[in-house]
Design a protein around this nucleic acid. Structure first.
Lengths: 347, 347
DNA sequence: CTGTTAGCGCCTTCAA
DNA sequence: TTGAAGGCGCTAACAG
């Protein structure tokens, strides 16, 4: 393969002044035309329009941002793109932003809150007009800096009236309560949980709390050795499930922190020849596309990832525009009962 | 939920001048300290460092970009984030960019090339210093604009020496040739293909060509009714697979455009009680984490998504820095033979 | 509705 | 090594 030095002579692009001259108007008029076409008399607007088209003019966003104090750019800092549910949410967020004239600056921090601080700092330097965060668990300096700089932000993927932060999300705890209640109703009593790692992760923590809320109200709990935390990966789910099922007595149901862990659990059962739901029931969280396609199809909670991305975008755009918004918006999580859950069999 | 109007008084942040005053130096010195600390005498550097820390100074990226003509921002325009393999590549790309001081501007276009033109235009306005594209199929105006503005770009997810564009990718066609050759070696002759949609998608097209290359060299081909295109989704894969298997004679092997389609095909076989690989072999492309976990585990081609993201970042950063780079870099695709392929059974 | 004219905050010669 | 000063390209009063 040949190595070559390419000289990228950053072309001296056209500027507003060039267009103004070509169209025989002032730079102010060109600027107005660009930002609010109707404020320019049709005849001259047409002249400007043509000059812009002919000269292939591309406005300089940096200059625009500096002068207007708005970058038309929005930041999002997420744990990882490797989890499909985040990817879906971000996809929707970006699409909606674009429709509103904004561009997405994206960063991920791999569930490391210190790294998140740095990524957020980088976005603040780029002067994002608003910021999307996941959950409420963030280093205090994050909130401090965001407030100090007056950057509007919204937390998603979670909801809590006790929180002071604006949010567009769903109630992880309540969702898990509903699922747990259902499981108890069909007769389960011996619960196990394969939770996501709860350190620095309020969503994972709330999901565990939701399960415990319901169990405790009936005088039950998850036994110490029936509770495990693992990474959000199929492999981690499999390993944890295997360890769990090698104990006895076995639980009658295993609730997983998300669908990916549940996939791992389910797959491991297949290779251990443990029948689901005959021998053990399994539940997930998210409702990824795969959940409904696996055999048996996964009982889970449907997270409104797309709706959340859209609403979060609208929330930020509205606030920046100075409009009133719902400060804490709660979206619904749907309980999806499929085939991996059934009343407990032989006790 | 209460609606509230939040007034985000865009705080009048500190500027270079404020820091300069506090540290009793000129703005030039502060600027130098920020961009090249060693060019400032230690004693004064320390004064500046302290002022910056105490005052919580955050440089204004827009001003910096305007003055330096570099935004320290890189664009990426991808088909969709909903395909895990893209998400993985972008994740790596972003991480590496960050290490080099760049921030990622991300846009997706849902496989619609007109939409891609618009998304790219938006990124060009934001004055990205470089751009990552997927594949070679783009509207001519994209290349024209990129060249006219002197924005370095690199195409990924594909490789072709006949292409004039810089790229960091892999050879889709050759990869499929290898897989097809293997299938013929173990005895297959009746091939079917569930390709991705090939219109405006050179990667999907190349994968089909690769299969045909090998078949034709043996005087074979994919029969017309054994070739179908479908979206990259489990559902589309299932539907296409069902239609395919309702015909007769059935193919002995079904090659899929990617793993997601293959998952659909495999799952559909399960619900149709068609044994894989006994009744039919199935292959994928990508090697998503799920591929090795399904039962039977999927035979597929491993795409170096992470490596590609890293290399693409390095490529762009190097070129911007004026260093020489490998203009067309080819990464390897690994043939992963697992359990969904076997010699054809009953003929 | 349109033109004139200050900046926006920082970088980068140029001289010292 | 440092400071002074002129832009970078655009927006947003302000006047007309």
């Amino acid at each position: 393969m040949k190595r070559t030095r390419l000289h990228h002579k950053r072309q001296s692009n056209q500027t507003l002044a060039d267009i103004a001259k070509a169209a025989s108007v002032s730079t102010a008029t060109v600027s107005r035309f660009l930002n609010n076409p109707d404020s320019v008399r049709p005849e001259r607007a047409e002249r400007v329009r043509r000059a812009v088209a002919e000269m292939g003019y591309v406005p300089n966003g940096a200059a625009r941002a500096l002068a207007s104090q708005r970058s038309m750019t929005m930041g999002a800092v997420i744990p990882t793109l490797d989890n499909a549910i985040f990817a879906t949410g971000i996809e929707a967020f970006q699409r909606r932003l674009y429709e509103s004239g904004y561009t997405l600056l994206l960063a991920s921090f791999n569930f490391d809150l210190e790294e998140e601080v740095r990524q957020i700092a980088a976005l603040m330097e780029r002067r994002v007009d608003g910021m999307l965060l996941i959950g409420f668990d963030h280093r205090p300096e994050v909130y401090a800096k965001l407030d100090a700089m007056g950057v509007p932000y919204v937390c998603s993927w979670a909801f809590g009236l006790d929180q002071k932060s604006p949010c567009v999300g769903f109630d992880n705890r309540d969702a898990m309560r509903r699922l747990t209640t259902y499981l108890m109703e069909i007769g389960h009593r011996r619960f196990a949980m394969l939770a996501g790692e709860t350190a620095h992760n309020d969503r994972a923590r709330d999901r565990v709390l939701g399960v415990r809320d319901v169990l405790k109200s009936k005088g039950l709990d998850i036994e110490a050795d029936a509770y495990r935390e693992c990474a959000y990966s199929i492999r981690a789910g499999r390993l944890a499930m295997r360890a769990l099922m090698e104990q006895s007595p076995r639980p009658t149901v295993v609730m997983c922190g998300n669908d990916v862990i549940a996939f791992g659990a389910l797959l491991e059962c297949q290779s251990m020849a443990i029948h689901v739901p005959g021998d053990v029931s399994i539940t997930g969280f998210d409702d990824l596309p795969l959940a409904s396609n696996l055999q048996p199809a996964l009982t889970t909670l449907r997270v409104p990832a797309t709706a959340m991305g859209l609403r979060a975008s609208d929330h930020l755009v509205s606030r920046i525009a100075g409009n009133s918004v719902i400060l804490q918006e709660k979206l619904d999580v749907e309980l999806i009962i499929r085939e991996t859950t059934a009343p407990p069999g032989r006790v």
